[in-house]
Design a protein around this nucleic acid. Sequence first.
RNA 1: CGGGAUGUAGCGCAGUUUGGUAGCGCACAGGUUUCGGGAACCUGGGGCCGGGGGUUCAAGUCCCCCCAUCCCGACCA
Length: 570
Amino acid sequence: MRLKDFFIPTQREIPSEAEVISHNLMLRAGFIMQVAAGIYNYLPAGLKIIRNVENIVRQCMNEAGAIELLMPSVIPSELWKESGRWSKYGKELLRIKDRHNREFCFGPTHEEVITDIVRKYIKSYKQLPINLYQIQTKFRDEIRPRFGLMRCREFIMKDAYSFDIDEEQCKLSYKKMFDAYCKIFDRMGLVYKVVEADTGAIGGNVSHEFMVIADTGEDTIIYCEACGYAANLEKAAVKYIEISEQKDREMPLEKVITPQMKTVKDVAVYLNVDESKVVKTLILKCGEKFYALLIRGDYELNLIKLKNTITGEMPEFATADEIKKITSGPMGFSGPIGLKIPIYADYSIKGLINFVTGANEKDGHFKNVNLGRDFEVCGFYDLRNAVEGDICINCGAAYKSAKGIEVGHIFMLGTKYSESMGAYFRDANGSLKPFIMGCYGIGIGRIVAASIEQNHDEKGIIWPIQISPFEVIIIPVNTNDPYVIEYSNRLYNSLKKLDIRVLIDDREERAGVKFNDADLVGYPIRVNIGKKSLENNELEVIIRKSNIMTKVNVEDAADTINTVICELKK
RNA sequence: CGGGAUGUAGCGCAGUUUGGUAGCGCACAGGUUUCGGGAACCUGGGGCCGGGGGUUCAAGUCCCCCCAUCCCGACCA
């Protein structure tokens, strides 16, 4: 491609809306352009990158035996009502109406549609297993889109769905996808971790997330270097450690005045105790039922764990009015003593003595509160977020934590959709069985963003060659020198003959402009063809990543570059 | 959804305090000189100052309403 005939609108100015580096660089390199909050144009070079990522994904999926199809982005509400998700899926689901006032949604995921296909055509165990996938534009009406392609509302996703005769076969399908995902992210050159995850709104029981490690990531992952355990924050288990404080040192209960001291921090500072000696009492609501949760002041409640161990449904925090009604005290002063609703406690409370809690009245707290003596709880559970330094549930070493970008997520779904939507097949005995399903997503745009987060320097992007919009850029340095132009064109044609994805910067720009643009856009290999070096019958090959420049004889140039490309692809 | 901020040329911004008919840099067009890390000079084009309503002789500037975008929060108990 000749740059004059192509379109890469690089910007010199730093876009004011871009907070994270990948967003900033994608805007400046002319890959994307914002149309609305969380909705972007993919400009030509950006599209090339997207396509490269898609093709790697596609190739690995095909190798793993998955079959590509394409489902619509607009889906009638009927299918979603069958699965029950029309009402359960929250505001993220963009619901729209056609001219006849019929309800549709813009698909955020396609379990319903794929199940509809399979239940219609797959009738026998002989047709199984099958894994169908698509690469499609999805829409999720995120509360807060941000960080460019990292969290947008409209985004491109690869989603695959497997159908099996039983759990065991499903595990095999799941494993195949697991391995395919590893291969995909390896080929992209990404540094990632696979973590255990909660299944959330999609449903099911087993789930893994593929996390690209990056400080700008929105997710927290907890991992153990000793045994390899890794999970996201929602899932990471906290091991119960016995605290052996001496029961006989219990002191008499004491009420203290704590004017305006609403937060754990306020109270701890005011009473001159450590935050870990303040126990917070959280009032949660789940349907019509209320619960009180006790957590040590320096820890955070994990709603997902609460849902999975106690409430079953996703709980919400009670409002100020509800708290007033239930505890008879204002928000900020709740405590377990005298509460009439079920009280559950995190393990962190067990064994604690002489702690501080709210007194369920304005400006009042209790000191020297003790479990058993002053109140009782229904039980102790793991209800808090793990933190760095916690003891690994597997091996006893200390957890570490890191920020990650979720680029892939795989689930074993079981029969959630097949049963609700009546998708059954005949097994070998002739009896009707629901399909055992799995689903497997990869965020294409997110991979692009994540790749930039991991591969850039102060000048711009450093593409892994597999993803780069072009493999080589040729820069004729002196555009007024006929030899420079001639040799540039000659090399360009030779590289094209070798099927190398080559771009020649034939613009009438000064060398510095071209160099800076090349560094910004991030081509892995740059070839400078200038008057000076041509006098020695040489040109310069520069590797973007290492910034190493090699002088190469013009006659050998094409072959040398081809060799370099092969090296970089390894 | 709550809080904060910002909307002025394609991009980045000043001008708003104290109302008086819109400016800078980059980009763009023409010209001269330059030409291996974002050139210099000259000339030029480009704005319903986010939208609507009001106050005023006069509004980018003051008041009201709306819209959009960005940031923070949504774990305060």
